[in-house]
Structures are given as structure tokens and as C-alpha cells.
Design a protein around this nucleic acid. Sequence first.
DNA 1: CAATACGTTGACGTAAGGATTAGATATTGC
DNA 2: GCAATATCTAATCCTTACGTCAACGTATTG
Lengths: 146, 146
Amino acid sequence: MFREVRTTDEKELFSVEDVAKKLGITARTLHYYEEVGLIVPSSRTAGGHRLYAQDVVEKLAYILRIKDSLGYSLQEIRNVLAAQETLDRLRESYQSGSETERQQIIDESIELMTTILQHIDEKLEKLSEMKTGLLERLDRVKKLRP
Amino acid sequence: MFREVRTTDEKELFSVEDVAKKLGITARTLHYYEEVGLIVPSSRTAGGHRLYAQDVVEKLAYILRIKDSLGYSLQEIRNVLAAQETLDRLRESYQSGSETERQQIIDESIELMTTILQHIDEKLEKLSEMKTGLLERLDRVKKLRP
DNA sequence: CAATACGTTGACGTAAGGATTAGATATTGC
DNA sequence: GCAATATCTAATCCTTACGTCAACGTATTG
């Protein structure tokens, strides 16, 4: 029923269908994202079937949120992910290069996040406007009823 | 500077570029939407250049809002527009068919608008979640600074 | 009225998957 | 334990929504 693995340390692995259903996408999307280098299955079965661990599923969910909510292209998403990974590396081994380099990474991260926040706010505003407009129209239509 | 027309009744007409700039799209999008039957230029110059009146520009703006904010496909947008036009026709010549037919049109409109409202709410929620998450992360990153 | 800017119709290119196929792999039911 | 059934694989072609030339015609401006 669940594909657990012999690695003894409890990692649950999910099949393509498991992941697709969980995230509301199709297997094709997983294959495609792998093709363009966005995600990689954590492992494969002896027969070659893809297996995904929890962290990859979460990364995917993150990608899908950015794509669906903000409408970013996969290329833009790649850039966002790359920036975040750079930041993560900085955070973990906190002597990765010179101080100016360090500063630059942080500054770029802040800039990127600020830009994304702006996009979110724009979307939120447009959606709110659409909502009020629609609610008004819905009201008017409902008055046509007996 | 502005392409006004001889029809004497004040209708301003806009060129492809005018419209594209106003709405933040490219000429290609206008051409494409025409190709697939979503919009039609209000008229053409003697030489064949497209001219758009205000109402078409507004329709286009509406289409773009649905597309960009909600992520609807052009096909879905066509359905929405068709439903609205059906309703508009009903509203104007208010004896277009039987009473049951009338009811059906109204009910379908209400249903459609309710569905769209749901999509809007879903988007709003996802965006809000993303926003809070990002704000937290931004805060943490800012603490890495001197 | 020539130079420059803008528009027209093709036609092909690209991104992000969808649909289909043929064959290998997994799961289940007995 | 193995056949029937369900999934997965890679490969290929299809679709949507434009981007990007190219080759040429139209409008505007100095």
C-alpha cells in the first residue's frame, strides 16, 4: 500500500500518482518538470519507477503555488529557487566567501522577496476589485428572479 | 495624434499600439485574439490598419483581468463572455423566449458567477497565505543584516 | 515628399503541458 | 505463485497562447 524503503530511517516515498493526486496535477507535469530540471525523484524502484520523498513533494507544492497564484513562468521560478538555495547555503555554512559577497547575497534576496511581495499585493488588489464588481453584478442578476 | 473618425459622433478610435500600450500587452496578442474570435477591431483604416473603439478596449481589459488574475484559458473566457452576452440579450429584449428558458438563463448566470466568485476567494486565500509566509521569511533574512 | 515609424499578413519558434502509444513493472485476487 | 489488472516508462505528436522574424504596405513628421 505504501512504498516504504529499506533505508531503515523511516522515509516514506511516494509514487508519481501519489504525488500527482496530492497536488492536483498530472503525471505529465512531474515528468516535464524533471525534463526541464526543476525537480528530481528522490530515487527509483528496481524497475525504474520514480519515487519522491516528502521534501521533494514540498518543493513541488511550493513551485505550484508560485506558478498558479502568481503566474510565474518556470524560468522565473527557477530563478527564485536558485536565489533561495544560495541563501540557504549561506545560512548553513556561514563563511561562504567574503563579507561583501555575503552582503550581496542577502541584499539580492531581500530585493527578490520584496518584488514578489509587490506582485502578491497587485494580485490581491485586482482580485478584490473583481470580487466587488462581480458581487454587484450578481446582486443585480438575482433581482431578475421571482 | 489621435485617430478620430468622420462619423461625427465623437467615437475615438485607437490603433493597435495605442491599445497594446494601454493594456500592457503586445500587438501579437491583439492579432491572436482576433484570430481565435475573441475580439474584432471596430473598424479599419482605408489601408487596412485596425482601429478599436472604447467598448472593445474595455472588453479586452475585462478579458485580460480574467486571464491574468484568475488564470482562465481563452476557451473558458469565451464561455464566460458568451453567458454574459446571453444575459445581456435577455435584459434588453425582455421577451426572448419562454419563461422557463428565461429562468434557465438567469440560473445559469448565477451559477457561473458563483463559481467565479469561489475561484476568486480561493486565489485570495492562497495569495494571503503566501504573503504571510513571505513576510516572515523576509523578516528572518533582514535579521542577517548588520 | 522622403525618411521614419507603424501596421499587415504569413510562417515558423517556444513554453508548458495534454493525449496517445507500446511495452515494462507492480499489485491484487485467487 | 502466477495470471489478471493496474501503473509506470519513454517516446512521440498535439495544443494553447503567444514570441519572433520577414517582406512588404501604410501613416506621420521634418
